[in-house]
Design a protein around this nucleic acid. Structure first.
Lengths: 254, 254
DNA sequence: AGAGTGTACTGGTCTGACCATAGTTTTCAC
DNA sequence: GTGAAAACTATGGTCAGACCAGTACACTCT
């Protein structure tokens, strides 16, 4: 009857992988909590019965995942870290940069993201966050006089406050990643703009409109405005037909 | 005048980190492309002038980020991999499990993504892609008889064809990552559903509606439908107020 | 009690070795 | 000549043992 025995495929699991796995599950089971200390490498090699190289390789991958941090000389051992979305940002960034992604795609994605973020912000925003957005806009107003660079910095700050108000970390991460990638790809375009004064005024007016919609809790309008403004900003990059289609998504009545 | 010299903070950079950095930038600069082989560990330790342990630790972090893969015994050396969203999925998963990211956030993000993907698909879809979507829906129809598991597989296939029609790789990457994470989180829920027959019929009807909107080029409707269906599907997870707000985004006339 | 010194142990790195394995080459039989 | 089998070679995985610079903590000495 041996033919009825259900054998299962075997894959050789490397030693350091099993060490990683055990520590990882210990962390996700809350047996190890942020701030806790792992035993020293020399202790770990005894408990896992492997060599120190193996332990170190395991710690390196745990470290690159952001789960632990080793500091030389610390007698308390490696520290278990608080999980943070920061590691996601790096990954998304690399993916964006690595994938052969057309600039138009990036812009398109950014448009959708920006719209969604504003929509969510209009629904989730709290009073202090509204206040933060208002002061951010006021700061932009003040920076108009100091040139495009300072203004752009204030602009970014405003948008960040909007992203924060969306109360969605995934959205924020993607927003951050796409913004970084976009800046990298269109670097230097800012100063090139001849009518910087007019552009600043326009941006300011746009952001005021968005803020009003968010403040009113009108997610639909906020999203639509954001989309059309991003389209305007990066208009040269995407084709005219897309420009029309993406911008008017919400204007077509259901 | 030494006090005017601008010194800059020094942080000790570990050797393996610099190895990682160099290989990483080589990959992101396309000097190393997917499928290429890295030199063997013993060669690397000569070119970087470090010990093999250091090289190995560097390779472990590169491997954990999905950039390379080492296979024992392969004389061609470690392989440079194609960047893949799989690593993103794993990271998102862990963050959700560690409650750094709320499940509701993930669902919310998914809703926005799905809607955006359908909107884009309605605008960018080509005729062959429409055909692929139609056959995918037909396949779903056929799988209804074979139970929820087979049906769900067909369902996923349909949605993948929609994502593909969006012609936006970033959207696809994020979609894949979130889908993977969501599936992992709600695994087993499928069979639990008592009225699986009715649910399948409903899903099928929903997908038919979406397909119709995409086919008609109506991005607004396609997006709205997709959002409301995802909300329906994962309805238990998000709070009632969000359910209403997110679903009706496009129904509020501008 | 506080400031400075010691010290024990940490992580980072190196050397050198062994094993099983996978790709390649060579051999050998037909 | 050709195909399969055996031998070879370099690879990654793992181990043991060593050295160094640095940190936290205890222990001085005032």
């Amino acid at each position: 009857m041996t033919h009825k025995v259900a054998f299962t495929a075997v894959k050789t699991v490397k030693a350091y992988e099993r060490v990683v796995e055990q520590i990882e599950t210990a962390i996700s089971k809350r047996e190890l909590r942020p701030g806790d200390r792992l035993p020293s490498e020399r202790e770990l090699m005894l408990t896992f019965e492997v060599s120190r190289s193996t332990i170190r390789e395991a710690l390196r991958v745990l470290e690159s995942t952001g789960l632990v941090r080793s500091r030389p000389g610390d007698p308390r051992g490696p520290e278990v870290l608080q999980a943070s979305p920061a590691i996601l940002t790096k990954t998304v960034n690399r993916l964006v940069r690595l994938e052969t992604i057309a600039l138009s795609e990036l812009v398109e994605f950014r448009i959708m993201l920006e719209g969604a973020a504003c929509t969510l912000a209009a629904q989730h925003r709290t009073e202090p966050q509204l206040q933060a957005m208002r002061t951010a806009v006021d700061a932009m107003q003040a920076e108009v006089a100091h040139g495009p660079v300072a203004f752009s910095r204030a602009d970014v700050a405003f948008h960040e406050s909007v992203w924060a108000a969306s109360h969605n970390q995934l959205m924020q991460i993607c927003g951050e990643a796409t913004r970084g990638a976009l800046i990298d790809m269109v670097i230097g375009e800012l100063d090139r703009a001849p009518d910087s004064q007019a552009r600043m005024e326009l941006s300011l007016a746009h952001d005021r409109e968005i803020l009003a919609a968010i403040s009113a809790g009108d997610g639909s309008t906020a999203g639509r405005l954001a989309r059309s403004f991003v389209i305007e900003y990066y208009g040269d990059i995407i084709s005219p037909e897309n420009r029309a289609a993406l911008g008017n998504v919400d204007e077509v009545p259901a």
